[in-house]
Write a protein that binds this DNA or RNA. Structure first.
Ligand SMILES: NC(=O)c1ccc[n+]([C@@H]2O[C@H](COP(=O)([O-])OP(=O)(O)OC[C@H]3O[C@@H](n4cnc5c(N)ncnc54)[C@H](O)[C@@H]3O)[C@@H](O)[C@H]2O)c1
Ligand SMILES: NC(=O)c1ccc[n+]([C@@H]2O[C@H](COP(=O)([O-])OP(=O)(O)OC[C@H]3O[C@@H](n4cnc5c(N)ncnc54)[C@H](O)[C@@H]3O)[C@@H](O)[C@H]2O)c1
Lengths: 235, 235
DNA sequence: CGGACTTTGTGAACGCAGGCACGAGCGGGG
DNA sequence: CCCCGCTCGTGCCTGCGTTCACAAAGTCCG
């Protein structure tokens, strides 16, 4: 119970925030931005839960990791909560990102304005194909992947996106790390490893589709060739 | 990979497979495909774990949900395991997918050959913009979103991909469900809900970047305004 | 000014997932 | 033919995440 001198702006002793909570914070932020737009000043955990698609107790617990920012009997102040969450997520300043691999996907990402708006401007594009180097996408010149060290230093970029073929992914990741990037988002369908202390997240569309396929099949072909069709307790 | 008279081809009473395991199966499949290509006939859980980036006990437990397909002292037969996993995931036949929203992202997805190769051919593209309807991307004509019921029936498509702006996502999802789609992959940054019994997965790039931003900030700004800098036990 | 009502913050219970460790089973070598 | 070494399959334990339920704490209204 330190800080909080009539709503201090200091962080309350930064406790450990569970990974699952961290993953939901951006969803809350987005929801709150929508609410702020429509001039809603206060929100209850129940309503926020509904909008964010989670359980109300979950919302309260998640928010409680950030501090006691709610008012009992009233709810949470939208603007204030937004401020606290943005700060916690590090959204108070821009994070320039570097995209490696300017093919189908890299081009779509580079052209997409949504990242810049949300504080993740595309700072640079790199590719290994000499024919692509020198061209520009969305106003950004494509540079050679060998220049990564310079580019990273130049833009103080800490976040890299890998949109190269799978075979090149680990090499590109290594180069990024060597150049000073310490957070990587990998789109290539390959297992990439980075040194301890770095962050790596992956988005694998083929995996997503295959997961859908699994459940889809279970529905359409309930127990096609199962020997015994006992009423297995399926939640 | 068919026959295999000595070993029954029947599914062993299809037990319940944990969601976390289902999410890893596609990774194993991809790894095994690579091994099959290089003529590796047998693989141990330890090596597979290494290639898939997980723990060896995890691999064994995951595979044990499918049945006892390993041979003690030897390992798993690559081809056979691949066959069993493919069947479990429903990859023995193609799953045509429908992409809604042919903008930056939709176009990249439509042009990407990887899905078709992996059994998820793009069966149709739909958009609400009359200027886009009639044009073709990657050899596939763009049709109007109003035609969804016909399109779904025509292609027996059960999987839909939403690549529209967030504001349209729920509406498109509803239309897809009404048309007979029961598995949806949503790329729009919006909370979409579907009726019970349908599958919905989301890929939200902005959320991914914000998660990276969170950990990145914690690294670069270790305890900027924390009151006490105790040696917090960070795993 | 007091009481009823609302909503937060959190303790406790529960279920899922991950990892260790070890017995069981198989192949290979002597 | 037997024994040894290897690897699977799984029971058990631990930790994380989710949900329930309720006391605490504030607001609002009469
Ligand atoms: N396009 C999609 O919709 C889509 C969907 C799912 C997954 N993916 C994955 O995303 C990745 C990119 O897909 P894509 O369709 O854009 O592929 P692409 O072949 O169109 O583009 C790949 C780009 O990476 C460049 N590249 C190759 N090696 C490189 C290296 N070492 N360093 C830097 N750049 C290098 C190539 O020159 C090319 O420009 C692939 O791994 C793919 O599997 C793409
Ligand atoms: N492009 C990217 O790299 C990227 C990255 C992350 C997230 N996203 C998300 O993916 C979605 C699509 O992004 P984009 O860049 O392709 O957007 P875009 O604006 O380029 O394309 C959207 C398309 O959807 C169509 N559309 C609009 N309403 C529709 C409706 N009701 N039914 C069918 N089609 C409709 C539009 O006509 C347009 O062709 C957005 O939600 C975006 O936030 C895109």
């Amino acid at each position: 119970m330190e800080g909080r001198a009539a709503r201090s702006v200091k962080k309350p002793a930064a406790r450990h925030i569970p990974e699952a909570t961290v993953a939901r914070l951006p969803v809350y932020v987005r929801t709150l931005l929508g609410l702020a737009d429509e001039k809603t000043s206060t929100i209850s955990s129940e309503r926020l839960a509904e909008l964010a698609g989670v359980n109300a107790a979950q919302v309260r617990k998640d928010l409680s990791y950030l501090g006691s920012y709610g008012t009992r009997g009233v709810g949470y102040d939208v603007e204030y909560l937004l401020f606290q969450m943005s700060r916690e997520l590090g959204l108070t300043h821009d994070w320039p990102v570097i995209i490696a691999g300017v093919g189908n996907l890299g081009r779509a990402l580079a052209n997409y304005g949504g990242f810049g708006e949300r504080g993740f401007p595309v700072a640079a594009l790199v590719d290994a194909d000499p024919k692509k180097v020198g061209k520009a996408i969305g106003g950004i010149e494509i540079r050679h992947v060998d220049d990564l060290p310079d580019i990273v230093a130049e833009h103080h970029a800490a976040i890299g996106i890998i949109a190269t073929p799978a075979a090149a992914a680990q090499d590109v990741a290594d180069r990024m790390v060597a150049a000073g990037v310490s957070s990587i988002l990998n789109f290539a369908p390959a297992i990439v490893t980075v040194p301890d202390g770095m962050s790596l997240r992956k988005v694998d569309l083929a995996v997503e589709l295959q997961i859908l396929s699994f459940y889809q099949q279970r529905r359409t072909e309930p127990d096609a060739d199962r020997t015994v069709a006992s009423a297995g307790g399926e939640g």
